[in-house]
Design a protein around this nucleic acid. Structure first.
Length: 322
RNA sequence: GGACGGGUGGGUGAGUGGCUAAAACCAGCAGACUGUAAAUCUGCCGCUCCUUGCGGGCUACGGAGGUUCGAAUCCUCCCCCGUCCA
């Protein structure tokens, strides 16, 4: 590889569970450090879903440039690899402009895909998948696990027999590549080059986070979430579009149909969001490179601490612009 | 006042003599996750002891008694809750 030599520049990453105030913190960082924001969130990628995905409004963005928000249509399928393919050019642009990229991460897998890379695997194949799924339905439950075991014992041992989604992906790769997926994995990933990553994490106390989730859900509902969903349906977005898998969107649909009361929807959304936040924390917790801050990202004091920390870390590289 | 129905572990709710610390689901806790990831999946989930084992002890199915080798499950009385009749 004879890549043109490029200087190693700092890249700040902000992680944290949903509703921890990542966006506000990232905007503060960008404003203080001449940055631009790169969203790393599987839902904010989509156009038309604004309220329920907690996308920062134009006003909240405070003039900071945001990348990778509103780049997919509601029915398109986002993928980790696709995300990486879009994020790389965005980082290049930011580099050319001499700005500091601030990656705001809600989706751990996408962060890993971008920073650590993915193995050289094929895209998903809907035809193959539907065939596999049909076979699974006919023959029953654990049959996919048996198939994978025959093709790749090692991969099979790492995936639970009930985890249909991951089994299908693994089998798909084995078939498409005509070799075991574990072999391809061993060949390695393609990590991000040319950036020095500084990771900061928000870790508000759990009780506090849950209160914030509840309050934010109420605020979303009050600011027209239901109308947003009604508008999506009226503009022809099908009910099986990807966006309706996002927390709350299915519930809004049910409220529209009258099969769910708004109160029940509210409770279900808050519950689902809490569960989601917990899964995010599990993902981030094991990342030893993260420097944690115990609070919410919209708190002045936290913003000050993080900016100071980031400034110091960035300074070390000597790569800070004017 | 009378007639039924019901009271089970944080919640919903199975279980009608032993295989039951008690199904299942939810919640909770911990975790996995290389192209659906706001997804998908796994473990734990009464208390306690230890030589951590398909280990021991204790407590538990409204309350108190009783029957039985053995009771969440059967009997008696009592207390609650619901529906209906007065």
């Amino acid at each position: 590889m004879n890549m043109p030599e490029q200087p190693i520049l700092p890249l700040v990453v902000v992680v944290g569970p949903t509703a921890s105030g990542k966006s506000a913190l990232a905007i503060a960082l960008a404003q203080c450090l001449q940055g631009e924001i790169v969203a790393c969130d599987s839902t904010q990628l989509y156009r038309g879903v604004n309220i329920g995905t907690a996308k920062p409004t134009l006003e909240e963005r405070g003039g900071v440039v945001h990348h990778l928000i509103d780049v997919l249509e509601p029915a398109e399928a986002a993928t980790a690899g696709g995300y990486r393919d879009m994020a790389l050019p965005a980082l290049d642009e930011i580099r050319k402009r001499g700005r500091l990229p601030v990656l705001v991460v809600g989706t751990g897998l996408y962060m890993r895909a971008l920073l650590e890379g993915l193995a050289d695997l094929p895209l998903r194949s809907e035809e193959l998948r539907s065939r596999l799924r049909a076979g699974a339905d006919k023959i029953g439950g654990r049959h996919l696990h048996g198939i994978l075991r025959r093709m790749d014992r090692e991969a099979a041992s790492k995936i639970a027999p009930a985890d249909e989604q991951k089994l299908i992906r693994a089998i798909e790769v084995c078939i498409l590549m005509r070799k075991p997926i574990s072999e391809v994995h061993r060949a390695g990933r393609n990590p991000l080059q040319g950036w020095r990553v500084v990771k900061v994490g928000l870790q508000p106390e759990r009780e506090m986070l849950y209160r914030r989730i509840e309050a934010r859900t109420d605020a979303m509902l009050a600011s027209g979430w239901l109308e947003e969903v009604r508008g999506l349906r009226e503009s022809g977005v099908a009910e099986d579009a990807k966006i309706f898998d996002f927390i709350g969107y299915r519930e809004m649909l049910a409220v529209m149909r009258g099969t769910l009361t708004i109160e029940d929807a509210r409770a279900a959304i808050q519950q689902a969001t809490r569960n989601y936040a917990k899964r995010q924390m599990t993902w981030f917790r094991k990342d030893k490179a993260i420097r944690w801050f115990a609070g919410a990202g919209d708190e002045r004091a936290i913003q000050g601490e993080v900016v100071a920390y980031a400034r110091a870390e960035i300074g070390l590289s000597g790569g800070l612009r004017p």
